[in-house]
Design a protein around this nucleic acid. Structure first.
Lengths: 149, 149
DNA sequence: GGATAAACATAGCCATTGCTATCTTTCAGA
DNA sequence: TCTGAAAGATAGCAATGGCTATGTTTATCC
């Protein structure tokens, strides 16, 4: 059809294949970690709010079934982010607390940034939940700068 | 630990459970559709640029193996987004073209917006790839408004 | 203290999305 | 034209993240 390869490239949306693949790889990598971050962040919130994080509460908040939570908690435990005692609640390890702190702060910055742009609180909350995991350090810093404008 | 339930709620990061679950449901729903959008957008780009969309090219761009692409194309075909002829390239249906158009435009707005915030083109490209699928119509409009500032 | 409800554990199922290995088809060049 | 390389098709495997059903433990309430 056409064979534009220089200035027109961006016009047809095709960057260099090498850089293109890198974006997708990064995105797939983010997609693998976002569930973990969601869990750890939620567990920290529940502990702060209720003093404990029970599977039923996590399941209710996430909108999934309790065995789904149980399976994921095993994964978090093997990754060293939480500690479990049978038939008891879960607790964050130091590593888990740190991940929760970083995730929560990033989440907060993203949500505040969207609100500052004039987006409604409800939409900002929903969009931030999805966007937060794909925001690099550089972009997060730009959001912070905008908030301090 | 504590039992703050009113003004302090946002401080401890716990909104109402009903709204909370809705955010996560929406995010999970977005996660299911984002791969489809990635494929359709890329297929449209390849057709515009090369006149055809071959499995090997799609695979190279996405950084996955060719059989992975073949499997996904079957899904896109059953969803009515593309047409396939054995041992030939793929073509977008009208529905596929429309989805590609919408995805591509949204992608462009997100990437331009990030650049306008002062983020480097490389980071903007990577982050936009992940963020675009989680941007609601309202947020997209806010990005557009900012770009027209 | 014993019954019952709630919470957690576990087994087993399914769909998705990746992979390698291998077969079939197409196509270009000698 | 024929042959070899490249592209697509297909089979089969693994990990992930959902689910239901059901068993086990804990906690609560007479």
């Amino acid at each position: 059809m056409n064979d534009r390869t220089t200035a027109d490239e961006t016009h047809v949306g095709l960057v260099d294949a090498g850089t293109h693949v890198e974006s997708f790889r990064q995105t797939r990598s983010n997609r693998r970690t976002e569930l973990v971050e969601d869990y750890v962040e939620l567990i920290a919130d529940l502990i702060d709010h209720d003093g404990e994080a029970r599977q039923v509460d996590i399941a209710q908040r996430l909108g999934v079934a309790q065995p789904t939570v149980a399976k994921m908690l095993k994964r978090l435990a093997t990754e060293g982010l939480i500690q479990q005692r049978r038939y008891r609640g879960v607790f964050l390890t130091e590593e888990g607390k740190e991940l929760a702190r970083v995730s929560r702060e990033r989440h907060q910055v993203v949500e505040s940034f969207l609100c500052a742009l004039g987006i409604s609180p409800e939409t900002a909350r929903i969009d931030a939940e999805g966007i937060e995991h794909h925001v690099s350090a550089e972009t997060l810093e730009a959001f912070r700068v905008y908030l301090k404008r």
